[in-house]
Design a protein around this nucleic acid. Structure first.
Lengths: 354, 354
DNA sequence: TCCTCCTTCTTAATCAATTAAGACCTTAAT
DNA sequence: ATTAAGGTCTTAATTGATTAAGAAGGAGGA
């Protein structure tokens, strides 16, 4: 079966290609009778309608927003924070009648033309590590771009959180409750798959800028409270999963003196820490306080966390992109908020502020 | 700033357009020296690389898989079953180096050209109600298609579950435990936003075919156990949310005689029913048994449910689509499995099988 | 009768690439 | 010296549409 195009139909009816095009896209440009005949012949020939790619080329618009994410798609869909953001982005796309093209980045160093070949009108870049080649590929496309959370790139529209302040708020909360023995667990610092205790070097060398900044916030709050950062055990995990959080929880809670408060990088991790506490028969918040981050899986578990306006961030990013490049290099920092629930309380008697 | 195309660069260097094209896509077709000069000029002129749309047109492939979903995107991202499926689909897309284009369907009857204009190589249609116009629009595109779960359309590749059997398995489980007083809550039967008790008519007239079939499974098991279907209170909810499940739970548990077992259409709904039981101080599974569906949010809650191979279904759908239309009208029914956890047990003494 | 205005359709330029086939020149072998 | 083979670049066809401008014809008014 040969391809059926506008021309096929035109030839069959002895009219010009333009006429057939008008029959589909501008009914008022031709007589109703001819239009009906065209539509009928199109149907008989099994014409699938004007080719979208050709249309796209001619009209100069793709009708889609590209979304770049550092993790595999499967992983992205498993992260509640990301999903919240996607929901917002999707809402904006929906309102504008454009699609959302999720672009897989090959995980190894397998070269890919994904970004180069993506048929999109704009790109949303989310959570890429410092120096990830995909950012350069995106910028090379010279389309409107907005970067979400990381990496920090001068001169490009950005949507994110005041990470140092948010991190400090989380830490300050338990410090003000009187805790002096903190522990920290973070996911998403590096891409090398390493899990375990992390010293100064791995902390400061984290390739995900937002997490590095968040960590800086934790640290500043501790130091301002007179707590030496080196006294705070720091556990790094490769994956943001509940199970990883549990293992980290066991590591942290196995230390002597045992921490009375644990700060987790994400809610999912925090839930894992709660699992570990349950394994050990530790009462939360009586014997252990836990703080999460993002308010993405926290409510039902009664987790104290930092709330982020994920959906609004997504919607805003979407609207920025759809408004085109004219918007200029805006830098939108969304407000966060400490949400105190049932996972934090003052430390057990005798273990708090002297 | 005028557009920079291959031709611009060709003119600047006094070479042909073809040569410039080769410089980008087939380096072995020209001397390294010229190639470098071309690349340099391209850089100087701010050339963004070969236009993907034009490329797509010429090559006859879009590099994307279209995904159609009946709900708004925001809602789709909130449904764990859908997310599981997406993960699988995304994995397949990732492996093939193509993107996943999520297409918003306008919710009202606002006409849209989304499907007609989507630049994709194939479509995955998921959970559309009977007679939804989007299916016709998709079929009109004459691209490879696979339908997931619903609607049932003869002659098109299908990926789904044996819903009648799965529904029956869920019901039979509690019936075999000895329960005689059942209650049912289901989401996703209609699109009219109605919540409340649903009689024969609304049950049999459900526009979502898979849910209709699942319901039929519940019913058959009951009747085979000698239980009249009309004796089983049936509550329908408009949205698949935990909160809706809770309200339905209160309605069902407010009846006298009170049901000793409740079958829920989805895990999310089942969690809501558990909330309602907790509100009423009912012990689960001592005083009430609850069965969910999909095994999407069930594990941590200890919920008995029907496990579905969401991810494999997604991966398979993706591979079918990427293999092209040659695959023929396959009909793949994935196995399901009753997973018994801590939310089901025999009914309280005296309330079970005579 | 002549002019104007519509309606309906056609002409042809344009969107931005890819690629088979051919032309031209150099090198090496016979 | 002749021929074949390679390497390098060009020509031109092709992908499938959109749309401004123009042409042809008929209707209506002066």
């Amino acid at each position: 079966m040969p391809r059926v195009t506008l021309q096929t139909i035109a030839d069959r009816l002895g009219v010009s290609r333009a006429t057939v095009s008008y029959a589909f896209s501008r009914p008022d440009q031709l007589s109703e009778g001819l239009r009906q005949r065209i539509l009928q012949v199109a149907d008989e020939l099994g014409y699938a309608g004007p080719n979208p790619t050709a249309r796209s080329l001619r009209l100069g618009r793709a009708g889609a927003l590209g979304l770049i994410f550092s993790e595999t798609l499967a992983y992205a869909f498993a992260d509640p924070y990301a999903i919240g953001f996607f929901q917002g982005l999707a809402t904006a796309a929906e309102d504008a009648g454009v699609g959302l093209l999720i672009l897989p980045l090959p995980h190894g160093d397998r070269r890919s033309e994904t970004v180069r070949d993506a048929v999109v009108d704009a790109f949303c870049v989310m959570s890429l590590p410092d120096g990830h080649p995909a950012l350069a590929e995106v910028l090379a496309r010279k389309l409107p771009v907005v970067i979400v959370d990381e990496p920090y790139a001068e001169g490009h529209p950005f949507v994110g959180t005041d990470e140092p302040a948010a991190g400090a708020d989380a830490a300050r909360h338990v410090l003000e409750l009187g805790h002096r023995r903190l522990g920290v667990v973070m996911a998403g610092l590096h891409e090398d798959g390493h899990s375990g205790w992390a010293g100064r070097e791995r902390q400061e060398g984290a390739v995900f800028a937002a997490m590095r900044a968040r960590l800086g916030g934790y640290r500043r709050a501790c130091e301002e409270a007179g707590l030496g950062w080196d006294e705070v055990p720091f556990y790094e995990v490769a994956r943001n999963s509940r199970e990883a959080g549990r293992r980290a929880g066991h590591a942290l809670l196995g230390r002597r003196p045992r921490p009375t408060a644990i700060l987790a990088n994400t809610d999912v991790l925090a839930l894992g820490v709660l699992d570990a506490a349950a394994d050990l028969g530790l009462e939360v918040p009586g014997e252990l306080s836990v703080v999460g981050f993002s308010d993405s899986a926290a409510e039902e578990a009664g987790l104290t966390t930092i709330h982020q306006a994920k959906q609004e961030m997504g919607e805003t990013a979407g609207r920025l992109l759809l408004a085109g490049a004219g918007a200029g290099p805006e830098r939108l920092i969304f407000p966060h908020r400490l949400v105190v629930r049932a996972s934090t309380a003052p430390p057990p008697a005798g273990l708090g502020t002297p």
